[in-house]
């Protein structure tokens, strides 16, 4: 039957599209080893591991990495709590304003980041809040909630409500039900939501430029290097490491949810 095989033109177009998506990222891996210091010359005149050592000894890179991990970790925890609470409320009951709640959760990611950024920035200056790690966290947690929320809502929808009633009928109180029935059921969805939220926060730059003040997260550090390059080989190495670090949670999320009807990571 003709329709079971893809026409050659479709294969070529799909393949070319995927190559277009992947080649630029692979290119970063080559540039991390180049011996060329001053320009983006291609092909690389030689290959070296020297820049990994140089990057390792750069305190500014470590500080930025540390701040990024700290912000992403705190934001993820906050987003997991708020997102799960919201998902539980929305999926358990029908109530007035339910649609509004969903919209409220999605809004920070539906509106352009620059809007969220400047809104927070001007609110901080109105309320005279000085920039700190916490101002960055405020922004990040706000747009990470939706990631956890989406994953948790999808799982709650598949978890039967009668399971909870059965648990209560058997004499468990609400906290015991939460501990022994609800959490084991939604556990992986929460872990996946958390990993994706971490990846999102770790990489965020648009909102962060407005809420960071003088602090540098790793993406802000990268941005500085892109706008005013100082040492290109170090940027190359950091870029490669960032790609590898962000991929881990994505592959983990895929691995944990593959085979289910809603595979995680579809929305960013």
């Amino acid at each position: 039957m003709h329709s079971d095989r893809a026409p050659l033109s479709l294969k070529l177009a799909a393949g070319a599209g995927l190559l277009f998506l992947h080649l630029p990222i692979l290119l970063i891996f080559v540039y991390a080893f180049t011996t060329e210091e001053k320009s983006f010359a291609w092909p690389p005149p030689g290959l070296t591991l020297k820049w990994f050592a140089v990057t390792w000894n750069r305190p500014d890179v470590w500080e930025a990495l540390q701040l990024s991990v700290k912000v992403a970790a705190i934001s993820t925890v906050i987003a997991m709590i708020l997102g799960t609470l919201c998902a539980a409320a929305v999926s358990r009951t029908r109530f007035f304003g339910r649609e509004t709640i969903s919209l409220l959760v999605i809004l920070p990611i539906a509106l352009p980041g620059v809007v969220t950024g400047i809104a927070l920035r001007s609110a901080f200056s109105l309320a005279e809040i000085p920039f700190s790690t916490w101002t960055i966290v405020l922004g990040h947690a706000t747009f990470c909630v939706v990631i956890v929320y989406n994953n948790a809502v999808a799982r709650f929808r598949r978890t039967s409500g009668s399971l909870i009633e059965a648990s209560m009928d058997l004499g468990a109180n609400m906290f015991q039900t939460l501990r022994y029935v609800i959490l084991p059921n939604i556990g992986t969805a929460l872990v996946v939501g958390g990993m994706l939220a971490f990846a999102l926060s770790f990489d965020e730059v648009i909102v962060t430029t407005f809420t960071a003040g003088q602090q540098a997260t790793l993406p802000i550090w990268m941005l500085e290097e892109l706008v005013r390059p100082r040492e290109r080989p170090v940027t190359n190495v950091v870029a490669m490491v960032v790609v590898l670090v962000t991929l881990l949670p994505i592959l983990g999320a895929y691995y944990l949810t593959r085979g289910t009807d809603t595979v995680a990571g579809q929305g960013k």
Partner: peptide, 21 residues
């Protein structure tokens, strides 16, 4: 699936940087 997911979640700045190269 992975082929779409990896570029989607890869660092935004790194992607821009790659194109600068």
């Amino acid at each position: 699936y992975i082929g779409v997911m990896m570029p989607l979640w890869s660092s935004y700045l790194v992607k821009i940087y790659a194109w600068k190269l």
